[in-house]
Amino acid sequence: MFLMCGVFAELERDMIRERVNAGLARAKEREFTWGVERSVHSWKLAYASFEQKGWEY
Rank of each mutant, 00 (worst) to 15 (best):
E10A: 07
E29T: 02
E56S: 12
K53D: 09
K28H: 04
A48N: 01
E51C: 07
R26N: 13
E56W: 11
S39E: 14
N21G: 01
W34L: 15
G23P: 02
F50Y: 11
V40M: 13
F50V: 02
I16H: 06
M4V: 12
E10L: 06
R19M: 14
F50W: 12
D14P: 00
V36S: 09
L3G: 04
S39D: 13
M15I: 07
S42I: 15
W43N: 04
K44N: 11
R38M: 14
V7E: 09
A46V: 15
M4Y: 09
E31L: 09
F2N: 14
K44I: 09
E29A: 07
A9R: 00
T33V: 12
G54L: 03
W43P: 00
G23M: 12
K53Y: 10
E18I: 08
E31V: 06
F50I: 03
S42V: 13
A9F: 11
S39C: 08
A22P: 03
H41P: 00
E31W: 09
K53N: 07
A48V: 01
L3H: 03
M15A: 08
R19H: 11
L11V: 02
A48P: 00
A48L: 04
W34I: 11
E10I: 00
H41K: 08
N21L: 14
R17L: 15
G23I: 06
R19I: 05
G54E: 01
K53I: 10
F8P: 00
V36N: 07
M15N: 03
K53P: 00
R17T: 12
G35N: 02
L11K: 01
A48W: 01
R17M: 15
R19D: 13
E56P: 04
V40E: 14
T33S: 10
E18A: 10
S49H: 07
F32D: 12
R30A: 14
A48G: 02
F50N: 06
Q52R: 07
M15K: 04
R19L: 14
Q52L: 13
G23K: 07
A25I: 11
E37L: 08
Y47L: 10
L24V: 05
M15S: 04
K28R: 07
